[in-house]
């Protein structure tokens, strides 16, 4: 089950895994610092902006690795923030890359920019860690704009919202004629697509981890005098879950390379549906054991459900746009990648 990741990525992923190990019990700010010190947060920022210049599939692999190893992770938003804030408002980029500022990213809120472009009003969708972040990077509008907001600015109110997730607090943010730190239209559409695609990768990684736990259990649990994993019906169901994850992974890889809006929406919608189903079924396969607090399955279920329920993504991309996107993939990349 391999994606389009490059082989030299393995070093970076090993670093990410050891960072995740090091900050297992750490609060968010501390854990971001650990990732920052290892140089991970600038992974997908351009080298000209002090980043590592890695590609988006690499970014997704980093997000997935951190996501399945660390329950309180926020690496996806941090990667995005360092990349896009670096362009929009370089002054803050160093703080973000070093982990001393925390920026959450919203792409599904309902925020309007005033006609003179000076203020923002509206609200963003519930986001992990929005209650404790220092900044908000948001994409808004039909002709998308990217805006950076200092969350200590006048007109910002926020509060914690109830979510199933135990490790990632969720916050709601309201903006009432707030003056943004910076606004620009460059890369806004790209940021939106990348954000939801990284979330899709995060969901996929969590689901794979949950399935892995179920497989490990089924490989040792015996009933009717045999290991459950040997039972054809169990294997068939697991194979169907494996197939769904592969389908989701293919869409993700495609979206990460092409980064068009419809490809990203499709990848996200599919991963959201598949991740929830895979985690639920994985829990089912642990029997009553899966219903206990000690087994980590409910933590995966909680975090996956929380993100899926909070993300405002149009599950049904306009079909005409979707088909047009397929057609453009034939002449601009996708299949044509086969060189």
């Amino acid at each position: 089950m391999s994606g389009v990741h490059a082989t030299d990525l393995s070093d970076v992923l090993a670093t990410v895994a050891s960072c995740a190990e090091a900050c297992r019990q750490a609060p968010l700010l501390e854990s971001l610092k650990i990732f920052a010190d290892a140089g991970v947060l600038g992974a997908i920022a351009e080298e000209s902006h002090g980043g590592l210049g890695m590609d988006f599939p690499a970014g997704a692999a980093i997000v997935g690795t951190a996501g399945k190893a660390l329950f309180s992770d926020s690496v996806g938003d941090a990667l995005l923030a360092v990349r896009y804030v670096g362009r929009l408002f370089p002054g803050l980029a160093d703080d973000l890359a070093s982990g001393s500022a925390v920026c959450v990213v919203s792409v599904g809120g309902n925020v309007a920019i005033s006609e003179d472009g000076r203020t923002l009003s509206g609200f963003v969708e519930p986001l992990p860690f929005a209650d404790i972040a220092t900044h908000l990077l948001l994409v808004t509008g039909d002709r998308p704009q990217l805006a950076l907001v200092d969350l200590s600015a006048d007109g910002v109110t926020r509060h914690t919202v109830d979510a199933l997730d135990l490790e990632r607090s969720y916050g709601a943010i309201w903006l009432d004629t707030v003056a943004p730190t910076a606004v620009g239209s460059d890369h806004a559409a790209e940021c939106r697509s990348l954000c939801i695609t990284l979330r899709a990768a995060w969901l996929e990684a969590n689901a794979r981890q949950a399935l892995q736990i179920a497989v490990q259990h089924l490989a040792v649990r015996e009933q009717f005098g045999r290991k459950l994993i040997g039972m054809p019906v169990v294997r068939q169901t697991l194979a169907h879950l494996g197939l769904k994850l592969e389908n989701a992974r293919l869409l993700n890889d495609d979206a990460l390379v092409r980064l068009t809006g419809p490809a990203a929406e499709t990848a996200y919608a599919t991963n959201a549906r598949v991740a929830v189903e895979v985690v639920e079924k994985s829990m089912h396969y642990l029997g009553a054991m899966g219903f206990t607090w000690e087994m980590p399955l409910h933590r995966y279920l909680r975090r996956v459900r929380s993100l899926v329920d909070a993300t405002n993504s149009s599950a049904e991309t306009d079909i005409v746009h979707l088909l047009a996107d397929f057609a453009s993939s034939r002449s601009s990349n996708g299949d044509a990648s086969i060189a």
Partner: peptide, 21 residues
């Protein structure tokens, strides 16, 4: 479909075989 699922279980996911006790 059942045959494909078995192949996926064995060769893609490489699930342990289980077998009898």
């Amino acid at each position: 479909s059942e045959v494909q699922a078995s192949i996926i279980a064995d060769r893609v996911m490489r699930l342990p075989k289980g077998g009898s006790k």
